[in-house]
């Protein structure tokens, strides 16, 4: 199935969880915050969140700022 992550199209297997996606991308789950279709996914629910065709994900993390 096709999803969008930070504006980029991405293919992944049906039934993939959010946690699996983050691991595949080498992102530490505790270091990112995720918005799925404009709704925030709580950090404890990444493993239980199964992605669907057409999902739009925003992965954010903290960077330096003033």
């Amino acid at each position: 199935m096709t999803i969008r992550v930070n504006g980029q199209q991405m293919e992944c297997e049906t039934g993939t969880t959010l946690l699996q996606l983050l691991e595949r991308m080498a992102l530490r789950p505790e270091a990112v915050v995720v918005e799925r279709n404009r709704a925030i996914v709580k950090s404890g629910e990444y493993g239980a969140t199964r992605l669907d065709q057409g999902d739009e994900l925003e992965l954010l993390h903290f960077v330096g700022g003033g």
């Binding site: 992102l27 993390h61 903290f62």
Partner: peptide, 14 residues
């Protein structure tokens, strides 16, 4: 601190 999209091509340290 600021919040930004993760750069998927080049994820930097947090």
């Amino acid at each position: 601190v600021a919040l930004r999209r993760v750069d998927l091509a080049n994820p930097r340290s947090n």
